[in-house]
Amino acid sequence: MATGGRRGAAAAPLLVAVAALLLGAAGHLYPGEVCPGMDIRNNLTRLHELENCSVIEGHLQILLMFKTRPEDFRDLSFPKLIMITDYLLLFRVYGLESLKDLFPNLTVIRGSRLFFNYALVIFEMVHLKELGLYNLMNITRGSVRIEKNNELCYLATIDWSRILDSVEDNYIVLNKDDNEECGDICPGTAKGKTNCPATVINGQFVERCWTHSHCQKVCPTICKSHGCTAEGLCCHSECLGNCSQPDDPTKCVACRNFYLDGRCVETCPPPYYHFQDWRCVNFSFCQDLHHKCKNSRRQGCHQYVIHNNKCIPECPSGYTMNSSNLLCTPCLGPCPKVCHLLEGEKTIDSVTSAQELRGCTVINGSLIINIRGGNNLAAELEANLGLIEEISGYLKIRRSYALVSLSFFRKLRLIRGETLEIGNYSFYALDNQNLRQLWDWSKHNLTITQGKLFFHYNPKLCLSEIHKMEEVSGTKGRQERNDIALKTNGDQASCENELLKFSYIRTSFDKI
């Protein structure tokens, strides 16, 4: 039985969820670079991206490699990797027998973001014989899940209580170790020597080791999670996991709180800001991140802002960003909400898709409305799209047979046209069989910064309504002859009103 693990408890099935942008060198404390989270699957090609990484700022997932063999891993080693800020997950990587050479110096898994409450997941690794993470000293947050690894031993010899604050939620089941077939031998045991430290858990006094050649490092209890030197002297209180010299914040392997210019500090002093819960960055760093993602459509890219001495992905609820200094300031009234469309555009074809934009005031991208039916549609669209004030790209209304009016965009005031449909149009209306009105132009103002209007096959939309939009939106004169079809717009509506004058002759039985 794995020490510190839980057996036999019912657990939810383990679901495996399925960018080499360097964020800056980590400095003297770390020998390499800070790398983003990685999802490495199918083959070993991307694994080489770990070569210079000291910190993975995010998670590391290595999974679904069915053609790899043990010899493929023999020359692979990433000794610079010290810390993973989120979680480490391995799933069905064939041929991998140990992690001792792959990650010989991995010391800390912070667990800032977890995989279903777990910071370390080893699942269905069919050839893994031992973990071998002999320098792993601290899992700051989260638990361990090690399950269905039929060859995995050296679990009962690990004292997880020396690595985690609590072992109650560890789930370590259905491994070879369960069948008591392992016969784990710690260093020196074969020669009758006791080389590794022994600890007591559940009444068992057991030597602690990761492999037959690597003991588990056990520091004096007084050192807590700070770690200790090879001689057993406690590291500085700002260290986490390990250090090369005692009581020196510049000799830590990793930091308990924050890293700044080669030393570990309790908090980031001005003019620095907390970033990702582990390091200090200056304003320029946060500003660069903001600008890199301002026009990016890459998933996970955030326009970072500053709030409460932190550089964070977005302002919290009730705050909006001051564009001059990136500071989050309290909103006066309802907060603006910028919604970034991942692929640059979004099609609204149902109430469900409209709900995804609920509360958005600025759309960074283009909207395509293609709704053919739905219950209580006008009210639903207004509830979900009615706060949109600005669209950076274009607005396209296409084959939306259920629409009679666009009044559900009740606050839309600006279409920038930074991206144009077919390279020309910022407003595009095609084949809307029941569209009769755009907006009530006596109450609604709309500016279209650039781009043209396109109207074709809107049989109940009168040309007068379209011409009014040209005047109000500032697009009059931009359109070419064929942009607004004269014969297919309003051709099934009563669009022309003329005053009919009647004269009559009164007659009676005795007068003409």
Rank of each mutant, 00 (worst) to 15 (best):
Asp261Asn: 09
Ile109Pro: 00
Lys176Gly: 13
Thr45Lys: 11
Ile158Thr: 12
Leu332Trp: 11
Arg141Lys: 10
Cys228Glu: 04
Gly227Ser: 13
Cys335His: 10
Ile109Gly: 00
Pro220Asp: 14
Gly227Asp: 02
Tyr118Leu: 04
Met65Thr: 03
Asp75Gln: 11
Ala230Gln: 15
Val218Met: 11
Cys234Lys: 04
Tyr94Asn: 07
Phe275Asp: 01
Cys315Trp: 03
Cys255Ala: 01
Gly300Tyr: 05
Cys252Ser: 00
Pro220Ala: 01
Arg46Tyr: 06
Tyr134Val: 14
Pro269His: 13
Pro79Glu: 08
Asn308Thr: 07
Arg110Leu: 09
His274Ala: 11
Arg256His: 06
Trp210Phe: 08
Lys100Ile: 07
Pro270His: 09
Met38Asp: 02
Val265Trp: 09
His290Trp: 08
Cys153Trp: 01
Lys80Met: 09
Thr68Asp: 07
Asn257Asp: 04
Cys235Lys: 00
Cys315Thr: 03
Ile312Arg: 15
Lys100Leu: 09
Glu57Trp: 03
Lys217Glu: 15
Tyr319Pro: 02
Asn309Val: 04
His127Ser: 15
Val55Ile: 13
Val200Cys: 14
Val265Ser: 05
Leu102Pro: 01
Asn257Ile: 01
Leu44Trp: 11
Ser237Tyr: 08
Arg74Pro: 01
Pro249Val: 03
Pro70Phe: 07
Leu164Trp: 06
Leu155Arg: 04
Thr199Met: 04
Cys301Asp: 03
Ser225Gln: 05
Asn138Ile: 14
Asn308Trp: 14
Gln287Leu: 04
Arg256Cys: 03
Cys182Gly: 05
Cys311Ser: 03
Ile82Gln: 07
Gln204Ala: 08
Pro330Met: 11
Asn105Lys: 04
Ser54Gln: 13
Gly227Phe: 12
Gly183Ser: 12
Pro271Gln: 09
Arg69Thr: 05
Ser54Ala: 05
Asn322Ala: 13
Arg162Lys: 10
Val121Gln: 01
Thr250Val: 06
Gly262Ile: 03
Leu44Thr: 11
Asp261Lys: 11
His302Ser: 10
Phe103Pro: 00
Tyr118Phe: 13
Thr199Pro: 09
Ser323Arg: 03
His48Pro: 04
Lys251Ile: 15
Pro271Glu: 14
Asn195Phe: 10
Lys148Leu: 13
Ala119Gly: 11
Asn149Arg: 01
Pro220Ser: 04
Ala119Lys: 00
Ile201Cys: 13
His226Asn: 07
Glu151Met: 09
Ser98Arg: 02
Ile201Tyr: 09
Pro249Lys: 03
Asn322Ser: 14
His291Arg: 09
Asp288Lys: 10
Arg110Tyr: 03
Tyr273Pro: 02
His212Lys: 15
Arg162Met: 09
Asn117His: 06
Phe275Leu: 04
Lys80Asp: 01
His236Arg: 01
His28Ala: 07
Pro246Val: 11
Val206Pro: 15
Phe123Tyr: 07
Ile172Phe: 04
Asn179Met: 05
Asp288Ile: 05
Cys215Asp: 13
Lys310His: 07
Lys294Leu: 05
His307Asp: 15
Ser296Ile: 06
Gln216Trp: 10
Glu97Gln: 15
Gly37Asp: 13
Asn43Leu: 04
Gln245Met: 07
Asp72Ala: 13
Phe285Leu: 10
Lys193Gln: 15
Asn150Pro: 13
Gly318Arg: 04
Asp165Arg: 12
Tyr304Glu: 05
Asn295Leu: 11
Thr211Ala: 15
Arg263Phe: 13
Glu314Leu: 08
Arg141Ser: 06
Asn179Leu: 04
Ser237Gly: 10
Glu147Phe: 05
Asn117Gly: 13
Asp177Ile: 15
Phe66Gly: 09
Met137Ala: 07
Met137Cys: 09
Val121Trp: 03
Asp184Glu: 10
Thr229His: 03
Pro271Leu: 06
Leu50Arg: 02
His236Met: 03
Asp277Ala: 11
Leu152Phe: 01
Leu106Tyr: 00
Cys153Pro: 00
Gly132Ser: 14
Ile84Phe: 00
Gln276Leu: 09
Glu71His: 14
Lys129Ile: 07
Phe73Ala: 12
Ala254Asp: 15
Pro79Arg: 07
Asn170Gln: 05
Tyr304Gln: 03
Lys148Asp: 13
Leu136Ser: 01
Thr85Ile: 06
Arg297Trp: 08
Val126Leu: 15
Lys80His: 08
Thr68Phe: 07
Val218Cys: 11
His226Lys: 04
Leu99Arg: 00
Lys251Asn: 05
Asn175Met: 06
Phe283His: 04
Ala156Gly: 11
Ile163Arg: 03
Glu147Gln: 12
Phe123Leu: 14
Ala198Gly: 08
Trp210Arg: 08
His226Arg: 14
Gly142Ile: 02
Cys223Ser: 03
Phe283Arg: 10
Thr85Arg: 12
Ser213Trp: 07
Asn150Met: 07
Leu50Val: 07
Pro270Gln: 09
Cys223Gly: 02
Asn149Ala: 12
Thr140His: 07
Asp165Gln: 06
Pro336Val: 13
Cys293Asp: 03
Ile84Val: 03
Asn242Val: 10
Glu314Met: 04
Glu124Tyr: 14
Gly232Pro: 07
Glu147Ser: 14
Cys315Glu: 03
Leu102Met: 07
Pro104Glu: 02
Phe78Ala: 07
Lys67Leu: 06
His214Ile: 05
Phe275Trp: 13
Thr229Gly: 03
Tyr304Asp: 03
Met321His: 15
Arg110Asp: 00
Tyr134Thr: 02
Val93Leu: 15
Val218Ala: 11
Ser284Glu: 15
Lys100Cys: 06
Arg74Gly: 02
Leu60His: 00
Lys100Met: 09
Phe285Val: 02
Asn175Pro: 13
Ser244Arg: 13
Leu233Tyr: 06
Ser98Thr: 09
Asn179Gln: 09
Phe115Thr: 07
Leu114Gly: 02
Pro316Val: 06
Lys67Pro: 06
Asn175Ala: 12
Leu133Glu: 01
His214Lys: 01
Val253Ser: 15
Leu326Gln: 14
Leu50Phe: 05
Cys315Val: 11
Cys239His: 00
Thr68Val: 05
Asn43Val: 06
Met83Thr: 06
Phe285Gln: 13
Pro334Asp: 04
Gly241Thr: 11
Asp101Ser: 14
Ser98His: 02
Tyr94Asp: 07
Cys301Phe: 08
Met65Pro: 02
Ala198Tyr: 12
Cys243Gln: 01
Cys239Lys: 01
Leu289Tyr: 10
Leu96Asn: 01
Tyr154Ser: 09
Leu50Gln: 01
Ile40Ser: 00
Glu130Val: 05
Leu136Phe: 03
Leu240Phe: 05
Gly227Gln: 14
Ser213Ala: 04
Gly32Val: 11
Val121Lys: 00
Ala190Tyr: 05
Arg74His: 15
Val200Tyr: 12
Arg298Leu: 09
Tyr154Arg: 14
Tyr134Ala: 03
Leu29Gln: 02
Val305Asn: 08
Gly232Gln: 11
Ser296Tyr: 13
Thr194Ala: 10
Pro197Ser: 12
